[in-house]
């Protein structure tokens, strides 16, 4: 794999435990700035844990995480968020009893630049016009797809340099998945680096440049996404071919 741009995120030998369960057994990866990278793997491989470890919700026991060269493994989640890392958690964790608008506002919680926040709000509304229609509606009353859009929109409201997405396709109709992935490309074109965790390996590899394959807490394969799509092992295990 040729790394041309300098990396925005670098993990070196990261170990994470849930009590005595060794969930991440030495993860190392490097994501170039401006890239879309994806992490694929089976259930329980440690994909979500990887994201939660990066954002500080489930802190790493050992190893180093660097964001733009700066170690962030000891920071609390809100501090990581303050550095410019936004995570859309798995299962559309929106705030159900806040309106769509308030949910988006929460995404900009750390920002003081009101004018730019308003601009980003317009941008999010242009990416997901349905959110504008639903602005006054409580998050919990939105449909599954709308909630996923809201969750992504909320993450964007912090104007992140790096967007971590946990299973954006989970439980959505194929057509909607396609729409969301198209929007991800749009977001990426605006300069946001995206690190994507997916079970829908085909979709994920199609829009990514770099792909990582994870098995039981370890990264077993790293390659260009297009190469992974052709890889016999990957085809057999994750693409169902």
């Amino acid at each position: 794999m040729a790394v041309t741009a300098k990396s925005i995120l670098e993990l070196t030998d990261v170990h994470t435990y849930y009590d005595n369960i060794h969930a991440l057994k030495g993860i190392s990866l490097s994501i170039p700035e401006g890239d879309i990278a994806c992490l694929i793997g089976a259930n329980g491989a440690g994909k979500s844990t990887t994201l939660l470890t990066i954002s500080g919700v489930q802190p790493a026991e050992k190893g180093e995480i660097r964001f733009r060269g700066e170690p962030i493994q000891h920071l609390r989640p809100e501090q990581v968020a303050g550095k410019g890392v936004a995570q859309t958690p798995e299962g559309r964790q929106i705030f159900p009893r806040m309106t769509t608008f308030e949910n988006l506002e929460m995404g900009a919680f750390l920002r003081k630049d009101k004018a730019a926040v308003a601009e980003d709000l317009e941008w999010v509304f242009s990416l997901f016009p349905v959110l504008k229609e639903r602005a006054g509606q409580l998050g919990g009353t939105l449909s599954g797809g709308e909630q996923q859009m809201l969750a992504i929109g909320r993450s964007l409201m912090s104007r992140p340099a790096l967007l971590l997405l946990d299973e954006p396709s989970l439980g959505l109709a194929p057509k909607l998945v396609e729409r969301i992935f198209k929007t991800l490309l749009e977001i990426n074109q605006k300069g946001t680096t995206i690190f994507l965790v997916e079970q829908n390996a085909h979709m994920a590899l199609n829009i990514s440049r770099t792909g990582y394959v994870m098995e039981t807490g370890r990264i077993v394969l790293t390659d260009r996404a297009s190469a992974l799509l052709e890889n016999e092992q990957v085809k057999k295990a994750y693409l169902g071919e």
């Binding site: 989640p77 705030f95 009893r97 929460m106 919680f109």
Partner: peptide, 17 residues
């Protein structure tokens, strides 16, 4: 309110919980 609704999501939005 964000903490009440979802603590993890609040943390990820940058709320010092």
């Amino acid at each position: 309110i964000a903490i009440r609704e979802d603590e993890t999501a609040a943390e990820l939005s940058g709320v010092p919980t």
